[in-house]
Simulated assay, not measured.
Amino acid sequence: MLNFPLLCFEGKVEDTSKVQTLLFSATLPVWVKNVYFLPNLKYLTLFFYCMNILIPNCPFLCCIIGLTCILSCQISARFLKPDKKTADLVGNEKMKASTNVRHIVLPCSSAARSQLIPDIIRCYSSGGRTIIFTETKDSASSLAGILPGARALHGDIQQSTREVTLAGFRSGKFLTLVATNVAARGLDIDDVQLIIQCEPPRDVEAYIHRSGRTGRAGKSGVAVMLYDPRKANFSMIERESGVKFEHISAPQPADIAKAAGNEAVEKINEISNRYNFCACFA
């Protein structure tokens, strides 16, 4: 939709019936399909208020995003014909979680997370990259400070520092990233083996985007969601995301030992294959 305002600056269209228009969107919620929506002052005020909460201390950016969305809706209403055709490649308009991901739920109180998460990483990361999602920036910073070799990523971190952090995560300088929803979408990071969500997110879409950071490009992955059995209810996420959660208990010493053994075997094989390759050229 961000391309639609360009029509305003490229010249006046004399006959809109002769114009072919395509509107692309990654997903097709109702508000995208209903492009004839023209916001009034009341809804505009509410929109800018919400944007200012999502992007604090940056009113200019909020205005740019808001005006872009408004122009998109108004120009879409002009150029998309009433008999427009819709091609929904997702189907049934509902976002679905990846079928290449093993979806796990595990009971854990907030006080026990820092002790449990390292064991989960040992058992399910297969020595690969792990992204841990928290609901708050403070939680992300605190948890990253406790976990060995982890780095934090959230909105209060300067952009230059974020870029350095992401570059280190991509290159394998460190394998654990603790983040808020800033890492849930738009990051092109390959080979993320494990996703851990410290608690059920507020909506199903957030769960789908977070768990979708693994199991990409046909590869498999694991998504573990922690929950407090006294207050958490994830039945809506299970129902609307189309997944069947696997219920497990905390990793036991035997599980951790087995995972460590498997990782050691993989590293030995990797070193052996490397030396065998070098021997061929000796």
Rank of each mutant, 00 (worst) to 15 (best):
F4R: 07
L7P: 03
C8F: 12
E14D: 12
D15A: 08
K18G: 12
K18Q: 11
L22Y: 09
V32F: 03
K33A: 08
V35P: 05
Y36V: 14
L38C: 11
L46M: 11
F47P: 06
F47N: 10
C50G: 06
C50L: 15
L54P: 00
I55Q: 04
L61P: 05
I64M: 14
L67G: 01
T68R: 10
F79M: 09
F79Y: 14
L80F: 11
D83W: 09
T86F: 08
D88E: 07
L89G: 09
V101P: 00
I104T: 04
L106W: 03
P107A: 03
S110N: 10
A112Q: 09
Q115R: 09
I117F: 03
D119A: 08
I120T: 01
I131K: 01
I132K: 04
F133Q: 01
E135N: 12
D138I: 15
A140C: 06
G145S: 07
L147F: 03
H154Y: 04
R162E: 01
A167K: 10
G172P: 06
F174N: 01
L175V: 02
T176I: 12
T176S: 05
A183Q: 02
A184H: 03
D188S: 00
I189T: 01
D190M: 09
Q197N: 14
R202V: 14
E205I: 07
E205F: 05
R210H: 07
R213L: 07
T214G: 00
G218Q: 03
V222C: 01
A223L: 02
L226H: 06
N233C: 09
S235A: 15
R239C: 09
H247N: 07
H247L: 06
I248T: 07
S249I: 08
A250N: 08
P251E: 01
N262F: 11
S272Y: 09
C278N: 12
